[in-house]
Design a protein around this nucleic acid. Structure first.
Lengths: 162, 162
DNA sequence: TATTGTTATACTCTATAACTATA
DNA sequence: TATAGTTATAGAGTATAACAATA
């Protein structure tokens, strides 16, 4: 348990992350805004899933996810297959086309980070990843209260294409 | 220097921070959106400054900063004083009124973080703050290339009210 | 001529609420 | 009745460009 001064400072630093995120979101293909990139990234990372699961992993409302999904589906970057277990739902699947787009995005992000973080060593990067993931868990638990079933049914992160 | 897999993961985790920021931005007073809170926070943290410096610290364009500043100035939370050294510029100053609003915001953020991060210890919080600050520096340096003068003229962070 | 700051415009992201179809 | 997704609406953030005043 930390004290108030630390929490104020953390709050401050979290706000500043926005600039980094915007920088990472620049120079994307015109048809691929950050929201679309997020969809593709999650699908590659975790594999096929339903809309509701994707929304949970993106940490945004299902309605928002629906629009992003439509955007990438219109461009053939993902495919919506009917879910045999529930006719209301669809299974979202990253297409080869989408995988190609994602490879470009990934390369762009890597290039930028390679430049900006040239003086970081692996341990610091790993530590930052670990703490951000934990931060997200700490905030996400309460949101998933009482309906943790989907966590179990989610596939583990698998970089299927690499 | 880290490798591509780490950078992809970092990019992914950074995206997820948005949910935490939105959670922190909820339940603010109706007249104080996150952008206003950012202005007040920076002014308390660093002291009086000009619009351009504030924009730099917020990591957004001056035009955006101008709008946020107008919003909080209209409500008497900051004061714009003419800059004796340059008639085009103003010095932004946090008022007592604004300090009061900020105390409320700060309390809200602290309460939320106290709840969510109840199982974190100080060291992990400090480490996350350190890495986020460094991340910001790594991205900020390039932006200030060739015009680093303002960095020297900025007062050091001082929690003037605490 | 260059710089500080303001304003108009347009784009993206987000949540809420109402709605359809299925469970 | 409850849940999966879609769509319409509205609010907030941001950047670009054109502009006024001053350096």
């Amino acid at each position: 348990m930390a004290d108030q001064v630390l929490f104020e400072e953390l709050s401050h630093q979290l706000s500043a992350v926005g600039a980094v995120k915007r920088e990472l979101g620049r120079n994307l293909p015109p048809d691929c805004p950050p929201g679309s990139a997020g969809v593709l990234t999650i699908l590659k990372h975790y594999g096929d899933m339903r809309m509701s699961q994707l929304a949970e992993l993106l940490s945004v409302d299902v309605s928002v996810t629906s629009r992003h999904v439509s955007h990438v589906a219109d461009r053939g970057w993902i495919k919506r297959s009917p879910d045999p277990a529930d006719k209301r739902a669809s299974i979202l699947h990253l297409t080869d086309n989408g995988r190609g787009v994602l490879d470009g995005l990934s390369q762009h992000a890597t290039d930028l980070l390679t430049d900006r973080l040239h003086d970081w060593d692996d341990d610091d990067v790993r530590e930052l990843i670990r703490l951000l993931a934990r931060l997200r868990d700490s905030f996400g638990e309460c949101r998933a209260n009482g309906k943790a079933a989907h966590q179990q049914s989610l596939p583990s992160p698998t970089n299927a294409s690499s």
